[in-house]
């Protein structure tokens, strides 16, 4: 079977690719575990100063694996909380990396997948990409990623985006500050990502990581409490009959 994530390093730039294209790179326990391992490795041994996070195939990351959290299918109500806690810890780990992390959003970045982009330092995408937080449409609460979305967009815009649900185009995402650099189309994204990553990598590695560390301190990124509490909250909403019903009907479509 294919590896769940691919980690490559080319000089000062490392690339981590979520590799589950058939499921639009949705985050299963397997994917999350593999991401944890890759991030641990980057933190411990890598001399890269920039990490690009992207997805294999058409999507960046479709969010949580909905099949895994549907109790009717798994028969196990604890999977939701396990997955969400795992995601919460992963976001903290990515934020704490000394590398500058660039999300290269090649396609759909939905829910938790869109939340991952907010954990990264810089987000690059293209006009035809799809981003957003449709959790409320399914009766669930994006509590794990909400602290990151608030930090990225400011609380007012985050409130609007997360309460309204739905998805937006790359252009709209760029307008509200969810995306920092926008390519014309998918074809232009790789070059834009490479240009940006190369430019970031020209910085002194110590200066880059010290700056990132300070920014993390200033915006409370090192406060784990809210993100971990978010996992519990999100799991409790996820387990309600209302949410399970909405998820089941989404999966049948």
């Amino acid at each position: 079977m294919d590896q769940p994530v691919l980690l490559e390093t080319n000089g000062l730039i490392a690339t981590l690719t979520i590799n589950r294209p058939n499921a639009r790179n949705a985050m299963s326990i397997e994917i999350l575990d593999a991401m944890h391992k890759a991030i641990d490795e980057l933190a411990a041994t890598s001399t890269a100063s920039v990490l690009i996070l992207t997805g294999a195939g058409k999507a960046f990351c479709a969010g949580m694996d909905l099949k895994a959290v549907l109790i009717e299918l798994s028969g196990d109500a604890s999977v939701g909380e396990e997955l969400l806690t795992n995601l919460a810890k992963l976001t903290l780990k990515i934020r704490n990396l000394h590398q500058i992390v660039v999300a290269s959003v090649n396609g759909a970045a939905i829910g938790g997948g869109c939340g991952l982009t907010c954990v990264c330092d810089v987000t690059v995408s293209h006009k035809d990409a799809t981003l957003g937080f449709p959790e409320v449409d399914l009766g669930i609460c994006p509590a794990v990623i909400a602290p990151w979305v608030v930090k990225k967009l400011g609380a007012g815009k985050a409130r609007k985006a997360m309460l309204m649900g739905g998805v937006m185009s790359g252009i709209e995402a760029f307008d509200i500050g969810l995306v920092d650099h926008l390519a014309e189309d998918r074809n232009g994204l790789d070059e834009l990502t490479h240009t940006l990553a190369s430019r970031l990598a020209t910085g002194g590695p110590k200066a880059l990581s010290a700056t990132k560390k300070l920014l993390n301190e200033l915006d409370g990124s090192l406060e784990e409490t809210m993100v971990l509490k978010g996992a519990k909250l999100s799991a409790s909403v996820l387990a309600t009959p209302e949410a399970q019903k909405a998820l089941a009907s989404r999966l049948k479509r």
């Binding site: 409320v136 609460c141 309460l163 978010g230 309600t240 949410a243």
Partner: peptide
């Protein structure tokens, strides 16, 4: 679904 909206608003208030 109402619960998701309520929980999300309350959580953003807490943040």
């Amino acid at each position: 679904p109402g619960l998701g909206i309520q929980a999300t608003k309350a959580w953003l208030n807490e943040i």
